[in-house]
């Protein structure tokens, strides 16, 4: 009797936990992308493969041509992606930015999950979001660049170093 009950609670807790995360990430206001992140978790085999292939096709042109190619598929997904596509474009320019004096004034937007002066959670959440994105999409998925830019803008370098170290040691306290 006791055993199934325990199992039940555990799965419930897990379900709830995951759901909570979903709600959280949904509020990021990029619904489509977040869904992409979530789906592979629940249905690992098929969806993930599909995702991977789709990704491959999008990644290939990026390498070959300018990052403006990335914008149309991203734009097609939702209108919220408008900001996203701009970010991606920028990330493509990033390497060039070091040589040329042209710097685009752009940073992590104001996030209405974190309207207060205290932005500690903002930085942390962006860091977690990026690594969750990378875990699902692969190391150099262009979709995750945006989150990387956000957390680098918001978090002090020292914190990032410490968290990176913790992730390597497996002691990172966040839900990755």
């Amino acid at each position: 009797m006791a055993e199934p009950a325990v199992n039940n609670t555990q799965t419930l807790a897990e379900q709830y936990y995951v759901k909570d995360e979903q709600v959280k990430t949904d509020e990021v206001a990029k619904p489509v992308e977040v869904k992409d992140v979530e789906k592979p978790k629940e249905a690992p085999s098929e969806e993930a493969v599909v995702e991977k292939t789709v990704e491959k096709t999008t990644v290939a042109p990026t390498v070959g041509e300018d990052s403006s190619e990335v914008a149309p598929p991203a734009e097609a997904s939702t209108e919220e992606q408008r900001s996203g596509s701009v970010e991606e474009e920028n990330s493509g320019d990033q390497d060039a930015a070091e040589e040329t004096p042209e710097i685009k004034l752009e940073t992590a937007p104001a996030d209405f999950r974190f309207p207060t002066t205290n932005q500690t959670r903002h930085c942390f959440t962006r860091y977690v979001e990026y690594h969750r994105c990378v875990a699902v999409k692969g190391e150099d998925a262009p979709e995750c660049d945006r989150f990387a830019k956000y957390y680098r803008s918001l978090c002090p370098g020292e914190w990032i170093d410490r968290w990176n170290e913790q992730r390597e040691n497996g002691t990172f306290p966040g839900p990755l």
Partner: peptide, 27 residues
């Protein structure tokens, strides 16, 4: 409004470190 840039001011005893990380592509 969305800010245009983010500057991180990190205080030390007794100097200030400023980080401009909007243009980074790695940690």
């Amino acid at each position: 409004v969305d800010p245009a840039i983010t500057i991180k001011a990190i205080g030390h005893q007794w100097y200030q470190t400023y980080e401009y990380s909007d243009y980074n592509s790695s940690d």
